[in-house]
């Protein structure tokens, strides 16, 4: 099957198109724009997690990278007076370096052992940020993170929205191309059978580290976007929920593809907000839990697997369930 640019474009295009036209029919409603912006950021975050999962390495602590990206970018803007557009790639690269280090630690770990160790990293980094580095980060009080555009600018929230769309779109495209490249192939091979891959000459450690670097780069990017969008960051960003969200998104959407991650993030967020807007209280958590269980029960390959064989719709969202843990 040819894996050319047209295929890629065909897969990302609907998403971008939807993103671009979304604010228009609603007359630039601030509420919808905010909603959509946060949604695109979580799509990117989920896709970054997904990239690592492709290599069979399941992170339970992606908040470590999300939060660190946000902090580094905010610090660069505040203390080095950089524009957020410059600081974000820098912060993402720094996060990727940290990710590489953590990847090195995790190299020999598999399955649950990897999961639990990664689970611990946000806790360790949170302690550092809130306590050891409080002179820099403001500790538990948090610190302001400057917006992408000054709110004094006319129509700045529209600018902000399209900037986030452009960055997320570009990042998703890169992730998609990477997972369709030789690297992605090798990663899926490793996930299927590490030993066999090694025998066939794939240097599994190198590839696994590379997966860590790429995933944490984009995780950091998502975090820095989120930080600059929210305008303020505090150590609460490292909480467990931040780590668990992308897992829920990707498992529900379908592992192994950018489209699956996007589908999951969108479907889960919409379902969740719909339940909330119905005015349900705790019942909605119970209902949500049951919905998750039912989805997995009847679509163990995620929602994307249901779309397989519907080429006119989302041909490239093909939930490859390559990963195996344990």
């Amino acid at each position: 099957m040819p894996d050319g640019i047209p295929r890629v474009a065909a897969s990302i295009a609907p998403l971008l198109l939807a993103a671009a036209i979304l604010p228009l029919p609603f007359g630039g409603s601030a509420h919808l724009i905010r909603y959509a912006t946060l949604l695109w950021i979580s799509v990117l975050y989920a896709a970054s997690w997904n990239f690592l999962a492709q290599s069979g390495q399941v992170s339970f602590g992606h908040a470590a990278f999300f939060g660190t990206g946000a902090y580094i970018s905010a610090l660069l803007v505040r203390d080095a007076a950089l524009s957020p557009f410059v600081s974000m790639p820098l912060a993402s690269s720094a996060t990727a370096l940290i990710g590489l280090g953590i990847g090195l630690i995790c190299l020999r770990l598999t399955a649950w052992f990897l999961a639990m160790v990664t689970f611990g990293f946000p806790i360790i980094i949170q302690t550092l940020m809130a306590y050891q580095l409080s002179w820099l980060t403001g500790g538990w009080d948090g610190m302001p993170s400057f917006r992408l555009f000054s709110p004094a600018m006319p129509l700045y929230h529209i600018w902000e929205y399209y900037s986030v769309c452009a960055i997320v779109g570009l990042a998703l495209l890169t992730l998609h191309l990477l997972s369709r490249s030789r690297l992605g192939l090798a990663l899926r091979g490793i996930a299927q059978n590490e030993l066999a891959s090694r025998v066939s000459g794939i240097g599994s450690y190198r590839y696994k580290l590379l997966a860590f670097a790429v995933s944490t780069f984009f995780g950091g990017l998502a975090g820095s976007l989120h930080g600059h969008y929210m305008g303020y960051i505090s150590p609460e960003i490292y909480e467990v929920g931040t780590s668990l969200n992308p897992i829920i998104f990707c498992v529900i959407g379908g592992l192994g593809s950018v489209g699956g991650a996007a589908l999951g993030a969108i479907a889960v967020t919409l379902a969740w907000d719909l339940l909330r807007s119905l005015g349900l209280m705790w019942e909605r958590f119970i209902l949500f839990g049951i919905l998750l269980i039912l989805t997995i029960r009847f679509a163990p390959g995620g929602l994307a697997s249901l779309l397989r064989g519907w080429p006119p719709l989302l041909g490239s969202i093909r939930g490859g369930r390559g990963e195996r843990m344990g």
Binding site: V58, A111, A115, I247, I248, I293, I296, P300, R324, G326
Partner: peptide
């Protein structure tokens, strides 16, 4: 059906 599905069920619970 995959370890992640089991994790998700645990989370949902």
């Amino acid at each position: 059906t995959g370890k992640l599905n089991e994790i998700l069920v645990g989370l949902a619970l």
